[in-house]
């Protein structure tokens, strides 16, 4: 399983290897570098000013490092997994190749639970082998489970109404859509994209 190689625990990255996307340990938590800016007065000390996301909490913060310092690599991997079901406490995912299963708690899943539909593939972030984050596909197709009755023939007007989808997400949809219809939604913005023919 080439994609499942663990990062050796002693690995570390020096400031000159910093780039966006790099996963490092900061104050005991796995973090991803979002931005890295090299600053240096011509005759002075060089610094790296970095913006990082704490992968456990999702918080974004700034850090300053003297150039030449290094940070321990975080044992973090992003893997595509199939979503199986929610047992009330955990969301269960499976590696399609090996059937190996992983359970993610509410903190790891976060807002992604609004877009998780059984059989769909999501990206699961593992830290030391345990899920700490879930990124749903950019687009999902979900059934409308509740909305006000549709206005027949009103396909041209721009009006919208709230609709509750099968996952519990509420999105704004055009007035003509009915309960039971399938819609395509952009999970990054929560916006309705189109109606999907069943």
């Amino acid at each position: 399983m080439a994609f499942f190689l663990r990062v050796p625990t002693m690995a570390s990255y020096s400031t000159n290897e910093f780039r966006s996307g790099l996963k490092v340990m900061i104050d005991g938590d796995p973090c991803a570098i979002i931005e890295n800016e090299f600053v240096k007065p011509g005759k002075g000390q060089a610094f790296n000013r970095v913006k990082i996301r704490n992968l456990k909490t999702g918080r974004v913060l700034d850090k300053t490092y003297k150039s030449g310092e290094s940070l321990e690599a975080a044992d973090v991997v992003d893997i595509d997994m199939q979503y199986l079901y929610n047992d009330g406490e955990f969301w269960h995912f499976m590696l399609p190749d090996t059937y190996e299963q992983y359970a993610a708690d509410a903190q790891a899943v976060g807002d992604a639970h609004l877009w998780l539909k059984a059989q769909d593939t999501s990206e699961v972030t593992l830290y030391n082998g345990s899920p700490i984050g879930v990124t749903p596909p950019n687009f999902v197709e979900l059934e409308i489970s509740d909305t006000d009755p549709g206005l027949k023939g009103d396909t041209a007007q721009g009006g919208t109404k709230p609709a509750t989808l099968e996952t519990g997400a509420v999105v704004k949809v055009p007035l003509f859509l009915e309960i039971g219809e399938l819609v395509r939604v952009d999970t990054r913005t929560g916006e309705y994209m189109s109606r999907v023919k069943k």
């Binding site: 600053v39 240096k40 007065p41 002075g44 000390q45 000013r49 300053t64 003297k66």
Partner: peptide
């Protein structure tokens, strides 16, 4: 850990 001059460098840069 910063020295006097490193502080000055950081402040003037940022």
């Amino acid at each position: 850990q910063l020295t006097f001059d490193e502080c000055l460098d950081l402040l003037i840069s940022l």
